[in-house]
Design a binder for these strands. Structure first.
Length: 877
RNA sequence: GGACGUAUAGCUCAGUUGGUUAGAGCGCCACAUUGACAUUGUGGAGGUCCGUGGUUCGAAUCCACGUACGUCCACCA
């Protein structure tokens, strides 16, 4: 072959874009174009990246793992679909654009632009982000079917969203309720419970005299209209006061207060007495409901104090705090102030602003209400009958408990159930503009819910939009064409696997299970594979402020996509965080180059480049039989690992075979035993090895493949399976002895500093098994003359390999003491080993209870060790 | 407060249902440079598998307790 086709080093940048383009134009990313009949299907949807910017290492690891799954299954001859898309990410994207507009000089972008103009700007930004993301995914080599690309906010997905909303509304699962919700004064929107984050903060904690009791609070500004004191029913200190009414001097004059007993009060906390603030605390709101108290709003949507606060009205609540405390101090009502109070401040997960609990009218999904289950005709869930009364919570639990959805790693089951147990009704309405607008219209007292706007005049649409996770919850089936009964839906739903980060198990995975089991009566996916976070080399999260971000694109530019992928996949296990350093990526770049050069050698060595049929294999030498055996063991192990989602182990075994067995031994031996049989086997293994590596390193393998099969593409090559008949235990055992002999020779050479240029004379004793391997040993051990026979006279260095002896004559070089020490050490070790084996075998309990095979192996080991010991003693004598 | 996880060589991590004299990569030490590859090769050093107790013929692996670190959830009037 032409050497120019394969330069000395693999330069990834020269090939990657062209290879990706050739895959794209081949059409093979689309399952409809795949060659051959394919009975089984494999389907996976891409967790749609937010259109808020660029891809980071978290996306890179996701793309790497999913592409491995996809390519492997495609080659396994399954009808394979990996469906891409992006997420509009409502609040996240709107917030990002607002910040950008404010940087451009706007003070209040929403007010200044109005809904329509503002949304135009957001859409424009989303489009730009989308284009960047798609290009980056292509750079990673992701083999996704772009012809099916979807967007959570496009019109097809909007129809799905509206249809589901109406279904749920009609089933009574979606309701409009007045409840305390998490309000972000900056986003001017409510948030779901899990969109609120907690940050530990030191603040002041105030104790005020309140009539007959002392109450504690961190937020005096909410306390204006508190007039109910709650104590624990068993608190003796207040027994006599419960049920009484008091005139209490308070912020804006006197208020009438009453005392009630309820178990929510904690006797240990502060004074054991608290007042309740129904409008700004969830617990208090529930209490107020329970006892029928009025709910007065003290703080409004802008975070300012309302009319109810009298002379403080209109002031910012947080800023007015000290003023209110001063007022109370004037009145002598401050008991004490704890300056070092540590508490968790709730903040918006998107903009970090302190969240205000407020009572608001919002849309909710009721997770505890019973409804009649609609079973699927197509892939029905087991264990639930059509028409059976179920709740959404119950469905979510059932899917995972019954293993119809299997989470990898399994331990996340517990986390999932725990989350569901604590789940409350899901607030799905948001007061932002970017998103799916709630499909509800009002006209006077009338309410209309529908997929399309109602006929007639005077209808006004609810201005709220839906939580972004409402539309992402439909992702697995809305992308396949639902609500239409499409061929895709029938073929690919339920999807085979969902691969995502464990950090969005609740946000997203749980929501998809909720939505799909409800809408289709099917599970969304059969397996959930959760990857961990990619951290920096010291284990910190990557963040811009720490300056420790490793950009996947930079790694691809510098070391190639294949190396970047390997560094993210090998050495990391599902559910666990992994650490990444540039050195690691560079290490895998070295490996891609190794594979390149192995190929370069093989392709240059063999007479006929091209496919080698099983039938044409003709193993002649020990090495031939050995490498075929090793390779077939490897194939079955790697295939099993990949089927079991054990990517790291599959990759490690492949690398170990490729480098430490194929390159270091077989290729080296082929240089001296390069007969016809060996040439065929070199070609045979290279061809299949490239196939096995392809899911991990698609670019370099596809590039090399051009040399082997200029017409075909590796991406659609069929996955070769292991053949049991090539497994040859005898050859493996014999080859290990050959390896150990060569290593022993090299070892002695190294010990006596014999440089490679100098050839040595070797005599092998009791080494009949190595007859016929002389040329191999001579070449690998840099040996001049090799003979079988007794230990030669003169200065000789000796190593014992099993019961064989390797003697090297080194006139004037041998250190007798060192030789003796070496053998003595080895004797002691062997004796220790023998002793431990004998002890175990002498144990009646062991020999009777342990499996036959274990005992047998131990007996074999013992006799081998005894033989070895005898030889060592002979040498020492 | 509740739950979950991790702890194995200097570093990063494997170790699949309990059966080895505990492995890999990187790093380290020594040697090697026209030969597929220095993005390389050869040899070597390096581990009380966090601690204690238990189950078992047998524990890095299973159980209990403890220690350290990490994560999630809940909540703090």
């Amino acid at each position: 072959m032409d050497k120019q086709d394969m330069p000395k080093a693999y330069e990834s940048g020269q090939y990657e874009d062209a290879i990706y383009a050739s895959w794209e134009s081949s059409g093979f990313f689309n399952p409809d174009n795949l060659p051959g009949e394919r009975e089984e299907t494999f389907s996976i949807v891409l967790p749609p990246p937010n259109v808020t910017g660029t891809l980071h290492m978290g996306h890179a690891v996701m793309l790497a793992i999913e592409d491995i799954m996809t390519r492997f299954n495609r080659m396994r001859w399954r009808k394979t679909l990996w469906l891409p898309g992006t997420d509009h990410a409502a609040i996240a994207t709107q917030t990002k654009v607002e910040k950008l507009l404010m940087k451009e000089g706007m003070e209040d972008p929403r007010r200044e632009l109005g809904r329509e103009k503002f949304l135009e700007r957001v859409e424009q930004f989303a489009q730009e982000s989308h284009d960047i993301i798609v290009n980056q995914a292509k750079r990673m080599g992701a083999s996704m079917d772009w012809s099916r690309e979807a967007y959570t906010l496009d019109s097809a997905r909007n129809r799905a969203v509206n249809t589901v909303f109406k279904m749920m509304y009609d089933d009574g699962l979606i309701y409009r309720g007045d409840r305390i919700v998490n309000w972000c004064p900056r986003c001017k929107s409510t948030l779901a419970d899990d969109e609120v984050e907690y940050r530990e903060e030191k603040s002041k904690f105030y104790y005020f005299k309140y009539g007959p009791v002392v109450i504690g609070t961190a937020r005096p500004e909410t306390k204006f209209l508190d007039k109910v004191i709650v104590v624990h029913p068993e608190d003796d200190r207040y027994k006599d006061l419960v049920g009484k009414e008091f005139e209490v001097e308070w912020i804006e004059g006197t208020v009438k207060a009453t005392m009630v007993a309820d178990e929510v009060a904690d006797m240990e906390m502060g004074s054991g007495a608290m007042t309740i603030t129904p409008a700004h605390s969830l617990v208090d709101f529930d209490l107020a409901k329970k006892y029928g108290y009025e709910v007065h709003r003290i703080i409004d949507e802008d975070g300012n104090l309302t009319e109810a606060t009298g002379s403080f009205a209109g002031k910012n609540a947080n800023q007015a705090r000290e003023e209110i405390v001063a007022r109370l101090a004037e009145k002598g009502l401050v008991d004490k102030i704890d300056e070092d109070y540590v508490h968790n401040l709730s903040v918006c997960y998107r903009c970090d602003t302190a969240v205000e609990p407020l009572p608001k009218v919002q849309w909710f999904i009721d997770v505890n209400k019973e409804f009649a289950f609609r079973a699927s005709q197509h892939a029905p869930m087991e264990g639930i009958e059509d028409g059976q009364q179920v709740t959404l919570k119950g469905l979510m639990q059932h899917a995972v408990r019954s293993k119809q959805v299997k989470i990898i790693p399994e331990r996340f089951d517990k986390t999932y159930f725990h989350w569901i147990d604590n789940l409350r009704d899901w607030n799905i309405s948001r007061q932002i503009w970017f998103g799916h607008q709630v499909p509800v219209w009002y006209r006077g007292e009338e309410t209309y819910v529908g997929v399309e706007a109602p006929e007639g005049e005077g209808w006004e649409r609810d201005p709220d939009t839906l939580d972004t996770w409402f539309s992402s919850g439909l992702w697995t089936f809305s992308t396949l064409g639902w609500p239409d009964e499409t061929a895709d839906l029938r073929t690919f739903q339920p999807t085979t696997v969902l691969e995502t980060g464990y950090d969005i198990l609740f946000f997203w995975v749980a929501r998809m299970i909720l939505m799909t089991t409800y809408v289709l009566g099917e599970v969304p996916f059969e397996n959930v594979y959760l990857h961990g976070l990619v951290r920096d080399e010291t284990g910190r999260k990557m963040s811009k402020s720490l300056g420790n971000v490793i950009d996947p694109l930079k790694m691809i530019d510098k070391y190639g996509a294949d190396a970047t992928r390997l560094s993210l996949v090998i050495g990391s296990t599902p559910g666990n965080d992994s650490k990444l350093s540039e050195a690691k990526v560079a290490g895998y770049r070295n490996f891609t180059n190794k594979l390149w050069n192995i190929s370069r050698f093989v392709l240059g060595q063999v007479e006929t480049v091209g496919h080698v049929a099983e039938a044409d294999l003709d193993p002649q030498t020990l090495a031939d039989r050995w490498i075929l055996s090793r390779f077939h063991v490897l194939q079955s192990e790697v295939t099993d690992h990949l089927e079991a989602y054990e990517f790291s182990q599959a990759g490690e075994k492949l690398r170990n075979f490729t480098w430490s067995e194929f390159a270091d031994w077989y290729v080296e031996i082929a240089k001296v035993q390069g007969g016809k049989s060996t040439q065929g086997i070199l070609m045979y293994i290279l061809e299949r090895l490239l196939t096995y590596w392809h899911p991990f390193m698609p670019f370099v393998t596809e590039q090399i493949w051009k040399q082997i099969d200029p017409e075909g593409m590796l991406i659609v090559h069929e996955w070769p399976m292991a053949k049991e008949r090539h497994v040859d235990a005898e050859a493996e055992t014999a080859f290990v002895q050959l390896q150990e002999t060569v290593v022993a020779i090299r070892n002695i050479r190294s010990q006596y500093n014999v440089v490679p240029k100098v050839l040595v004379n070797v005599v092998l004793s009791d080494a009949d098994v190595l007859a016929g391997q002389e040329d191999v040993i001579r070449s690998l051990g840099r040996v001049e003359s090799l003979t079988f026979g007794a230990k030669p006279e003169g200065d000789v260095a000796t190593a014992v390999v099993g019961s064989m002896q390797v003697h090297i004559s080194l006139e004037g070089l041998v250190d007798k003491e060192a030789e003796k020490g070496k053998l003595t050490k080895e004797r002691d070790e062997t004796q220790g080993y023998i002793a431990s084996l004998e002890k175990k075998l002498a144990n009646e309990a062991f020999t009777s209870k342990a499996p036959e095979q274990v005992v047998e192996t131990m007996r074999t080991n013992l006799s081998e060790a005894q033989a070895k010991l005898a030889v060592i003693n002979e040498q020492l004598a």
